[in-house]
Design a protein around this nucleic acid. Sequence first.
RNA 1: CGGGGUGUAGCGCAGUCUGGUAGCGCACACGGUUCGGGACCGUGGUGUCGGAGGUUCAAAUCCUCUCACCCCGACCA
Length: 571
Amino acid sequence: MRYSNLFIPTMRETPSGINAISHILMLRAGYVRQLAAGLFIFLPLGWRVLNKINTILKEEMERIGAQEISMPILHPAEIWQQTGRWYTIKEEMFRLKDRTGRDMCLGMTHEEIMAWIASKEIKSYRQLPQIWYQIQTKLRDEARPRGGVLRTREFIMKDSYSFDIDWKGLDESYRLHTEAYHRIFTRCGLLYYQVESDPGIMGDLESHEFMAPTPAGEDDIVLCDNCDYAANIEVAKANLPTLLPLNLEFKEIYTPQKKSVKEVSEFLNIDEKFFIKTLLVISEKNEPVLVMLRGDQELNEKKLAKIIGEFTFATFEQAEEILGVELGFVGPIGHNIKKIADLSIQREIHYISGANKKDYHLQGIVPGVHFEAQWTDIRKVKERDLCPKCGKSVRVEKAIEVGNIFKLGTKYTEPLHAYFLDRDGVEKPIIMGSYGIGTARVAAAAIEQNYDKDGIIWPKSISPFDIEIIPLNMGDAKTVKLAEELYEKVGEIYNSFADRHMEVLIDDRDERPGVKFKDADLIGIPIQVIIGEKALKENKIEIRKRRTKESKLVSINKAVVEIVNSYYETY
RNA sequence: CGGGGUGUAGCGCAGUCUGGUAGCGCACACGGUUCGGGACCGUGGUGUCGGAGGUUCAAAUCCUCUCACCCCGACCA
């Protein structure tokens, strides 16, 4: 295509107030514009990228036998009421009424609708298994859109749904998706990990997330370099840290104004490991719960929420009222309320914690002797903890969730009466799975992982164009003639591997060379073909790889071959 | 929803404290000179100063309310 005909509004200056690299570069390079919080317009280049990704998604989904369908975005409330999610999901769902006053909502995902159509049409085991997918817009009224296209209120997602006769079938559908996802993210040029994850409101069964590591990510993932352990920090486990016992006489100690574990630890010059951190939380049933962790550990709120449900941390006033002591001096002994202790607190070891008395702590506390509690894993894994699989130390990395896969079982098919008759004429619920990939997130993750100070460096599989031809002087007839010839010829070259034409962009604008170079680097097309008068005098042109910035002069009569070869060489 | 911040030309910003004719750079249009890393000279157009109300002879500036957006947190199939 011709640059002069394309709408590519690049910006010289960095927009203020935003900090995700992908957000800045997508704006500066003219890929997107923002309409409102969490709502983005994809301009021609941005849309081309999304379509490249969607094409890969389609190819890989079709490859595992999935069939593309299209679903309404506007849903009647009844179906969501049947599965209960109309009530369990709160402000995140966009709701509206139609002209007759009927409750409707905008689809944030499509389990309900997919299960509904399955319930109507799937009657026999002979019709199973099925995998249906869609690449469509979803809407969620996000509490806080952020990071440009990383978290938006309206977004395109590929989601697929599997329907099987039994759990074995689901395992197979899940496996097929896992393989497809590995192919998809590899083809998209992403560095990624498959991690164990929290199924959240999707169900209680197995689920994994595909995570692209980058500092812009919203999630923390725990990785082991020694083995293949990888998990979202929400569910990650680690080996119990052990402690050499310290003998402490059971007695109160005066610790004026020292409240946090850190403060008391420094004051007494005793390692934080020998402390018990005592937290007071209030569950959603308004029940106070005392939560204990070893002093050097942090609470994993997701793990605790799984045990006691949603909770909030007690305020200063609530603590005074419930425990009769100021926060900072609360200890595990006494208090006739529910207690949960992390497994990192070992029995038969002497610890220090609050004395339940202002300005005093208590040492020599022995868990199991001085207090009892429900012992369970509620701590957050941190860097250098020991891998639960191999025992070597793990690391924690930030990552963008680009895809996920869930085993749903009968969570949606039962409430929606999606039953079939099996071989023996027995009625059974369809076993379901769901699998998503956020298209724009893949694009953003690709940028986060592939850029330099000059702009985007697209993995070539999802670049909006393959080759950019840059005639430096549009006033020079020879330059223009050669550029046009290459534009025609390279565009016609058949890329036998991917079975498509090279997509060539020619910067035919009457701009100065500097402008063209800057824009070319910004928009990030893998191969730049530079046609300048100096080299032309020696019958040469320049081929430059965006990623490495290495360039070489090649003679005109070999230009086409060299350009195509360079394209294959880069990645 | 809690905390912080920002709204002035298409973009980036100054002006606000201390009220007195709304500015700078880039971009844009035209002419000329340039042409291998975001050129230069000249000329020109561009604003409900986020909105509403109030104080005042006078408000971008002070006061009250409100809206939008960004960042941190909560939340997040």
